Amino acid sequence: MEQGVQATTGIVIDKLESWWVSLVENLPNIGVAIIVLILSYFLSRLVFKTTLKLIDGRVKQKAVAKLIARVVAVFVVLTGLFLALSVLNLGESISGLLTGAGISGIVIGLALQGTLSNTISGIVLSFRKNVRIGNWVETTGYAGEVIDIALNYLVLKEADNNIVVIPNKTILENPIKNYSLTTRMRVMIDCGVGYESDLEAVEKITKNVIANSFEQIESTENVEFYYTEFGGSSINFLCRFWIDAENSLEQLKAKSKAIMKIKQAFEKENINIPFPIRTLKFNDQTLKVSKAEEALET
């Protein structure tokens, strides 16, 4: 029994002595590895600040800019870690770390596929010049002002002040109409006048009203006017003109103003804008049959 204890104690002591010898022999390498890790840490902080300054003007979303800077900083730290392990002659450890990182990356990627997809889409959106904060856009059935582009979602503020949150992946996969990319918008007005109206006078009055109501319209030649159909109770026409606007709200205001001015001008000239009506005609035979039916019922 005592011999077994002594043998075990000897093995432990020999192992500790070998470890101590290895520690002493590798002290220079350990010192270099620690210096490399410290340098990589401070270098990563410097790289983080530098990257943030470089992309600050190109990426308006602070969250996206910080994410990119952090990724670059983490890459610097990982590079320092692998260099430190190389100094310590831990080749097997490096291979194990790489293998573990690869497997972990696959597992995390599968588990967070939707989140990562939205995050990457947010980074892509932040670099796109055709979608910016403050733009008035329409996509996936919603229209409003872009008030935020986060890592995972885009926030719209609709005309009725409702907030709509749309995943970034949905934005990239669907068409998007950006009204703010152009400084001019076309206003279209559908209206109708009575069949008794002088059509040439209606056209002339409408063009004059539009040209005099908006400063950006130089003359009546810039106003389009077309009669479109013989309606059930009116002859319908389409009036189109361009205004300086960057969102649909300004377009709605211009359309509302044009409708009021056209109605005022038509009332002044006694031009009728009829509402839908139905005219019923009866001949003598129809009236006689109706009277006969009434007599039978009584």
Rank of each mutant, 00 (worst) to 15 (best):
Ala65Phe: 03
Pro276Gly: 10
Ala143Glu: 02
Glu221Asp: 14
Glu267Pro: 01
Asn161Phe: 04
Asp56Asn: 15
Asn152Tyr: 03
Arg128Leu: 03
Thr51Pro: 01
Lys263His: 12
Phe237Gln: 10
Val187Gln: 07
Arg128His: 01
Ala295Pro: 04
Leu85Thr: 11
Arg240His: 07
Asn26Cys: 06
Tyr227Pro: 08
Asp148Phe: 00
Val223Trp: 04
Ile149Phe: 00
Asp198Asn: 15
Thr183His: 09
Val289Tyr: 10
Ala254Val: 01
Lys204Tyr: 02
Ile176Thr: 12
Gly105Ile: 12
Ala159His: 07
Leu296Tyr: 11
Tyr227Gly: 04
Asn270Phe: 13
Met185Gln: 14
Glu221Gly: 10
Glu196Arg: 06
Glu221Asn: 10
Asn222Ile: 00
Ile103Tyr: 05
Gly134Arg: 09
Glu246Ala: 04
Ala265Val: 04
Gly100Ser: 12
Leu88Lys: 06
Tyr227Leu: 03
Val131Leu: 02
Leu280Glu: 15
Glu250Asn: 10
Cys239Ser: 11
Lys49Asp: 11
Gly114Pro: 01
Phe275Thr: 14
Leu156Ile: 06
Ile277Gln: 12
Asn222Met: 13
Lys49Val: 10
Thr228Cys: 04
Val146Ile: 14
Lys257Val: 05
Ile38Pro: 13
Glu297Met: 09
Ser44Gln: 02
Asn212Glu: 10
Lys157Gln: 05
Glu293Phe: 10
Ile273Met: 13
Ile262Asp: 01
Ile106Met: 15
Ile30His: 06
Leu98Gly: 08
Thr140Phe: 12
Ile243Asp: 02
Leu98Met: 13
Thr182Asp: 11
Ile235Pro: 01
Val209Asn: 00
Glu25His: 12
Ile166Val: 09
Leu252Met: 12
Tyr153Asp: 09
Gln216Gly: 05
Val5Gly: 04
Lys255Glu: 11
Pro175Lys: 04
Lys169Val: 08
Thr279Lys: 11
Pro276Arg: 07
Val36Phe: 11
Ala245His: 05
Thr115Cys: 06
Lys261Gln: 10
Glu267Ile: 09
Asn222Trp: 04
Asn283Lys: 13
Thr170Pro: 02
Leu98Asp: 03
Ser233His: 00
Gln251Ser: 11
Ile30Ser: 14
Ala159Gly: 09
Asp244Gln: 13
Ile94Pro: 03
Gln285Glu: 15
Lys129Glu: 15
Ala292Ile: 01
Leu97Arg: 05
Gln264Ile: 02
Asp244Ala: 12
Ala201Tyr: 09
Val87Ser: 08
Met185Tyr: 05
Gly10Asn: 13
Val164Glu: 05
Asn26Met: 14
Gly100Asn: 08
Asn135Gln: 07
Tyr195Ser: 09
Ser213Glu: 14
Val124Glu: 00
Gly100Gln: 08
Asn135His: 13
Ile11Gln: 08
Phe225Tyr: 05
Ser117Leu: 15
Lys281His: 10
Asn130Gly: 05
Val74Arg: 02
Asn162Lys: 10
Ile68Phe: 03
Cys191His: 09
Gln251Tyr: 06
Trp136Asn: 07
Ile106Gly: 11
Asn29Phe: 13
Asn118His: 01
Asn89Cys: 01
Phe225Cys: 01
Leu287Trp: 13
Trp20Ile: 09
Gln264Ala: 14
Phe275Gln: 15
Thr206Val: 10
Ala143Thr: 02
Gly122Leu: 02
Asn162Gly: 06
Ile176Val: 11
Ala7Asn: 09
